[in-house]
Computed example of a mutant assay.
Amino acid sequence: MRLASIRHDGTEVPALVDARRGVVRVADLVPGFSGDALSILVDGRWAELEKLAADAPDRVFADRASVEFGAPYRHPRLIWGIGLNYVDHAADLSEQVPDEPASFVKGDHTVIGPGEPIPVPPQSSRTTAEAEVALVIGRHCRNVSEADALEYVAGVVAVLDQTAEDILERNPRFLTRSKNFPGFFSFGPEIVPLAELPDLAELEVSTVLNGQEHRTNTVARMRYSPAFLVSFHSAVMPLQPGDILSTGTPGAAHIRPGDTAECRIPGVGVLSNPVVRG
């Protein structure tokens, strides 16, 4: 079952999503539950809740189309982003894929969820949206091997990662600033456990703008695989449950107020956000 947050009585509450039965609030499985989806990851309770949901009556489930999804959680401890990870995307930009992952960190003030507006900041005349698949860490992870790395991943989620590209073009040292405006990290609607994905390498990630596919590629075309990225970054610092590692984009689309940006990943989900003036 997938982990998500849904809007209920003016707040966002954690929920599980079953492909057949629909959506159930965690509070309907554990009366009095007051945490968020991040606390479920931190406390290692996802598997326990899946068992409770499997035994729950159908009446506690709502049809997926009847609920409104939010960001799975609002305050991840850490968001790692990876630049120029698709070989083809680097070629588009006349760039070479770096000899090591080109990573950066984003703050939780950038987080938004499905359907929330992406503000184009007044400091930028060229902001881009970049569809990505992100890895959600499931347990403490430090100095792990590439062979074992995916054992530490709870699941994957669709992402739209924004960049003030004109700021970055002025100087590559401006990367952190160009990536950290409010609304520059949308993720959701659901965290999909790896067990639901037969082959991570075959996932197809598409950046879509106003309903038109802008660029599509598969995880297999990454220079640095998801397992390598987890292993590499776990050697830099400890990774903790709920940390997010966004793996790079097949292509960035220039967005303007009035546009709608989407990340589409068959088998994972569709993430859509309108674009507004900041």
Rank of each mutant, 00 (worst) to 15 (best):
M1P: 12
R2S: 07
R2T: 07
A4M: 03
S5L: 01
I6P: 06
T11N: 11
E12R: 02
E12C: 15
R20P: 00
R20T: 05
R20A: 15
F33L: 00
A37I: 07
L49K: 09
E50G: 15
L52I: 00
L52S: 06
A53G: 12
A56Y: 00
A62N: 01
A65T: 11
V67D: 12
F69Y: 15
F69G: 09
A71Y: 06
A71T: 11
A71E: 06
P76H: 11
G81A: 04
G83L: 02
Q96W: 06
P98L: 01
S103D: 02
P117M: 02
S124L: 13
R126T: 13
A129I: 05
E132M: 05
A134M: 11
I137A: 03
R139C: 09
R142C: 08
L150P: 09
L150E: 09
Y152L: 09
V153N: 07
V156Y: 00
E165A: 15
N171H: 15
S178N: 12
P182Q: 12
S186C: 11
P189R: 08
I191D: 10
E196Q: 15
D199A: 10
T207I: 12
T216P: 09
N217W: 01
S225K: 13
P238L: 04
A253G: 14
I255W: 08
S272V: 06
